[in-house]
Amino acid sequence: MAEQPNQNDIHPTERIKKDRAAIVEVMMELQAKRGFLDDQDVIEAARRTGLSPTEVEELASFYTLIYRRPVGRRVLLVCDSVCCAMNGSERLLNTLERRLGIALGEVSRDGAVTVLPSICLGLCDRAPAALLNGEALGPLDDARLDALLLELKRSR
């Protein structure tokens, strides 16, 4: 997405050579390689958009779905907002931590997964719900959780 000329009080260098509007797209593209952005990726995103690494970090650090630390091959987002919370998401998260032997945000020992709590995923009709690499899961009961953990274990 290319930027249009603009009228606001905007950094003069931007009038000349920045492609700010592409930044989220660029970060997502770089993140697709390994699942997260390391410092070199931030510098690369800066190079591609004409922003500075600090300006990229201002955005990278704001968004939920940009990861600045290593994550597993898959990311499991578990909703902890109101509907899912009323339907047992806290227990779900605790179980996941226990059975994977990791804290939220860590990478499981086999590198397969990182579990992160998430705000409402728009899956309230499937509470408690989760999103595994964009794939909707829910309602997650004990049986489904077992199946999920098995699948995570098998995935290489």
Partner: peptide
């Protein structure tokens, strides 16, 4: 435009900022 999360992005003027990068 596929955003990268955050509730506030739905507030229309924040959304405009997000779209501008």
């Amino acid at each position: 435009h596929v955003s990268a999360g955050r509730y506030i992005c739905g507030e229309e003027s924040a959304l405009v900022n997000a779209l501008e990068g």
